[in-house]
């Protein structure tokens, strides 16, 4: 709620105005993945994005990350026009995307190596982060020796290691069971509370979207547009008990209503 106030007196961390993305396809028929989207995200805000499969969520995230060029409209990052990928964004891809020939530690330190940062200083940081996510004893293991949830935690640690101002996450917990997911959500909120990064997180779980967010962005089916932005007025720190509260349920029902019947099928993971 304080976040919402601070929106007015600082430059937004991320600002999309009139952004569209059209993909050319092999069949010749263009795909309108994103249609005239406006979105303003304040620094330190925790934003979640929900919408039916194929509505352009990943496209939106890739545009913000600078991995994709918009067909029209402008994207500003901290007030400056977006020109491409930036080390100010830490990205967690839909699948963990770890390098199998690198140990957990080496994977986490990949950004440090690529960005030529101080190896010793960030090595300490990586160690501390891995301890936070409970992987202290796995630093020298290889990805194929880890569970899916552990791999995702490594990917999150990697996104955080160079201390980027933004964290962009594409369904980071999609492949996890409900219990691990809850635990990961709490860990993520802890990290966010400690660092106050701007977070944009895509999810298929409405519960998760409400639980984590300051604001939930609901997108329409293709071509994707922002249907509604819902400010989640729940106290922080969030606890799992809140999920059963009436207020929480109201948000969930409202979003479910917006998404319509199509989205229900994909929302099985959480109660």
């Amino acid at each position: 709620m304080q976040k919402a106030l601070s929106l007015h007196d600082t430059t937004p961390a991320i600002e999309l105005s009139g952004v569209s993305k059209v993909f050319a396809t092999a069949s010749g028929e263009p795909v309108h993945a994103l249609n005239y989207t406006n979105l303003t995200i304040g620094a330190g805000e925790f934003i979640t994005v929900v919408g039916a499969s194929g509505c352009g969520k990943t496209t939106l995230l890739r545009l913000v990350a600078g991995l994709e060029r918009s067909s029209s409209g402008t994207i500003r990052i901290n007030g400056a026009p977006q020109v491409g990928p930036s080390e100010q964004a830490g990205i967690v891809f839909q699948d963990a995307t770890l390098l199998p020939w690198r140990t957990v530690m080496q994977n986490v330190l990949l950004p440090v190596q690529v960005l030529k940062l101080d190896a010793r200083k960030y090595g300490e940081r990586a160690r501390a982060l891995l301890e936070t996510v409970g992987l202290k004893d796995f630093t020298n293991k290889y990805p194929h020796e880890l569970s899916g949830g552990m791999r995702q935690r490594v990917a999150i640690t990697r996104a955080l290691v160079h201390d980027p101002a933004m964290l962009l996450m594409d369904e980071p917990f999609g492949a996890l069971d409900a219990m691990t997911r809850d635990q990961m959500n709490l860990e993520l909120l802890d990290i966010w509370a400690a660092t106050r990064k701007t977070v944009v997180l895509i999810t298929h779980s409405i519960t998760e979207s409400v639980f984590l967010a300051d604001r939930v962005i609901v997108m329409s089916p293709r071509p994707g547009r922002v249907v509604e932005e819902i400010v989640i007025d729940l106290p922080r720190p969030r606890t799992l008990e809140m999920i059963n509260k009436e207020e929480f349920g109201k948000y969930v029902r409202h979003i479910r209503g917006l998404l319509g019947a199509g989205a229900h099928a994909r929302n099985g993971a959480t109660p």
Partner: peptide, 22 residues
């Protein structure tokens, strides 16, 4: 995999680094 290449691109890794590391 495109994802691995995107990862390197998101860190602005050069051609040689991407080749050598990924």
């Amino acid at each position: 995999e495109q994802g691995k290449l995107d990862l390197m691109r998101s860190l602005k890794a050069g051609r040689w680094l991407t080749f050598r590391m990924v």
